[in-house]
């Protein structure tokens, strides 16, 4: 699996929420595929960890789920962002950007 990275601790939740924000309600499999595609297939997702992560977000009230039909008319459970989830994505995104910006300053070549 050379070239592919595991998901960093704690970033999966943000990836999930951000993806849901972009593409709207989605089922678990679609969400997983979409995350891999977004990363340009550079991360390797263990699908088994996705569902507990989704459950955690649901318990925290950031997403909600309901049963629906998939594109090819299969029964599937769809996840969508709640109001609280939207707020959380905005906040977490800002924080993450701040963090990376700071880190970038440290990692930039010396002298700049």
């Amino acid at each position: 699996m050379g070239g592919k990275t595991d998901v960093w601790q704690g970033t999966l939740a943000l990836m999930v929420l951000r993806t849901l924000e972009t593409i709207g309600p989605q089922h678990g499999y679609g969400l997983a595929r979409r995350i891999e595609q977004t990363s340009g297939d550079r991360i390797q997702l263990n699908y088994g960890t996705l569902y507990p992560a989704l459950l955690k977000l649901e318990q925290e009230g950031y997403v909600r789920s309901r049963w629906g039909a998939s594109d090819n008319n299969r029964k599937a459970k769809f996840y969508e962002l709640t109001k609280a989830g939207q707020r959380y994505v905005r906040k977490a995104t800002a924080e993450w950007e701040e963090t990376t910006a700071i880190l970038a300053r440290f990692l930039a070549p010396a002298g700049e």
């Binding site: 678990g28 499999y29 595929r33 569902y51 998939s70 090819n72 299969r74 029964k75 599937a76 459970k77």
Partner: peptide, 17 residues
């Protein structure tokens, strides 16, 4: 119990993909 159904649907989608 709900999760069993979800898993099943997940596998089915992965298999057809």
């Amino acid at each position: 119990a709900d999760f069993d159904a979800e898993l099943e649907s997940h596998i089915a989608m992965a298999v057809s993909a």
